[in-house]
Design a protein around this nucleic acid. Structure first.
Lengths: 359, 359
DNA sequence: GTGTTATATGATAACGATCAAAGATATGGC
DNA sequence: GCCATATCTTTGATCGTTATCATATAACAC
């Protein structure tokens, strides 16, 4: 590997001059010297040593990206189509902007922190991080952070949340189910710390609008690893008799469950309706096609990177808590229940109650 | 951030001694000093600066991972479930072994090379790389390389291919189709440079065993971007009338096509049979469930990393061209065609011809 | 007391790039 | 010729860590 010093020696000039040419500070270097150096740069295809660079400068050009290390049958969260698309978009954008990406999928937050610090990452993108872990990271790591799909606490500064209209999405989906006559709806969430919590609020508001009250026993918390345990699925299968609809917080789970349920003879949507969240490719391909809430993960990934780099370069900090739009996508996984089936309940919303949209 | 020098000053000792304690060279340091230093290390939660480390040492602890930058509707190849699972396994293993992973999904090989060189990556894992690009990388980058799903040329040294029994898989799949009475089979490949070429050889051998000859017009080369172009799909749709089976080189494509075709009224497998390769989750979930060739991407990812690290640490170099096992998984996407439909051809293989298994 | 070995520690120079400040050269005005 | 200014170039320190070599001290044998 050729170094700046090598080239300086070859031309009989100093390393500073070579460095200046490389950085385009041509106003300080004579035209003649510039040409000589540039010729050499091309000839030897000079590549700077980034370790040396990040040692002298405060920035490393590295952006760390962390995913929760969910262990499902496919061994890793990257297998979730939503995350993989998002991740792909993040990677492209980081590269396009001249930065480098380092990924961590560990659950071990101390290890994550060590990794970031050891490389002195310029910024961090955290996907689906839990509150306590975020606080832990914040206490050690002082560079900019962008959150995606995490619950954003108001008492911590210097970070941006690139979120969704989660509440609105869940609200609209619940209204959709209600309008189709569903009254016994299970809400399936991952945990109550992140976006699922906000979505649940939207769900509650929609129920309230229809004069119904959310019952905590209809809130089913599903940990990712449960999706693979036969026993857990069996339990869900048993519970499903109490409901006409399963409202899931991700397409991935909805699709997995639909597959499991239909293998056991449940007709979808005749016996049980399903809805998802994300609108991944899968949802369009399976039959019945999944009714879901669409988001644009590629756009979201790009925005996250763009925002982070703005913060790193200390340009104006954009909105503190962005909410990207979502859209209800109606397909075939929700049955319309005739009013006769639920004669005791009106299908009209009651008046004068919060309509549940975000702000 | 606390440095070695800070700690040395605090204790009134030299940086060398602190460094020795950190590296466990306790035989060279007195017990008393070791304890003092270790106390400080804990107290300040010292994290070494890896830029500085990789500057003095020849190794950076970075492993570069490159994917071809396929652009499909989901904007990135990471969205392919096979790749995402593989990638997840690679990431976990790299982390577990104390290394760091940098990902590149660019098609621009010069950029990839610059990235590797600028960080002085200790090793490289290339997924689905084309021959010419591989040669280009090899000419500039001298550290160990592991290939996955790439055609491994024999004239280049110092790399290992972590492959599959591709030929055997395609052979068995073709035999399966033939035994079910199919005679008009289209072989759908990405390109003829990588593993698809080897799979095609297996396909040819199986045909030959049954006294049939592969016809080049039955080899359909599908570029990834075509999957999203309505016109290309329309053309495929038109072509499909000539066949009773589509043998695809990836589950992802098979599933996409099945969805497209069935939306257009094609009954699967009654009108057209489909087979895939990989056995991703998707293939089990869609209906009809896809008949495919199973591989274990998690195992493959781990092996790739393990092999690369062995090469980096100059332990014994393992097999030059590993072939991990594959397994035919029969599901519901292949129709059994009655012998009456193809009376002119025997369904018994001819004798005395190469049976097409790998070596 | 001398020499040998082992143990513990320190001084110094890399590694490759950047930056501030100082030095060198050329140009112009008087 | 002298000084001022502008243009170009070099010197030397710095970043945090590690490696090499040297030094200091202690322990031991003879």
């Amino acid at each position: 590997m050729i170094t700046i010093k090598d080239m300086a020696d070859m031309l009989g000039i100093s390393t500073t001059t070579v460095s200046n040419v490389i950085h385009g500070k041509t106003s300080e270097v004579s035209q003649k010297t510039v040409e000589k150096v540039e010729k050499l740069l091309k000839e030897y295809d000079y590549v700077p040593n980034n370790s040396a660079r990040s040692l002298t400068q405060k920035c490393s050009k590295i952006i760390g990206v962390s995913l929760k290390g969910r262990k499902d049958q496919y061994d890793n969260i990257i297998a979730d189509p939503f995350f993989s698309v998002l991740l792909g978009a993040i990677e492209s954008e980081i590269r396009r902007r001249g930065y480098f990406m380092m990924i961590y999928t560990s659950d071990d937050i101390s290890e994550l922190i060590r990794n970031i610090l050891t490389w002195n990452a310029d910024g961090l993108i955290l996907l689906g991080i839990l509150h306590d872990d975020f606080v832990k990271i914040k206490s050690r790591y002082k560079n900019p952070i962008v959150l995606i799909d995490s619950y954003a606490p108001r008492d911590i500064m210097n970070y941006v949340n690139v979120g969704l209209e989660d509440e609105k999405g869940a609200y609209e989906m619940t209204v959709h189910l209600l309008e189709r006559g569903h009254r016994r709806i299970a809400f399936l969430a991952d945990n109550m710390e992140g976006v699922d919590y906000i979505r649940y609020i939207g769900h509650q508001k929609a129920l309230a609008r229809y004069g119904l009250k959310a019952d905590s026993k209809d809130l089913l918390i599903i940990r990712a690893e449960m999706m693979e345990r036969e026993a857990s699925m069996e339990e869900l299968f048993y519970l499903s008799r109490n409901y006409t609809a399963f409202m899931c917080c991700s397409d991935y789970w909805a699709v997995l469950m639909m597959s499991y349920f239909s293998d056991r003879g449940v007709r979808i949507p005749e016996d049980l309706s399903f809805t998802g969240f994300d609108d991944v490719l899968l949802s369009r391909i399976i039959r019945p096609a999944l009714t879901t809430v669409r988001q644009d993960p590629a756009k979201r990934g790009r925005l996250a990177v763009d925002t982070l780099i703005k913060m790193i370069q200390e340009e104006e900090i954009p909105e503190w808590d962005v909410k990207l739009p979502v859209e209800l996508v109606v397909r075939d996984s929700v049955k319309t229940i005739s009013a006769y089936g639920n004669p005791e309940r009106s299908m009209e919303p009651e008046r004068g109650i919060d309509d549940g949209t975000d702000e």
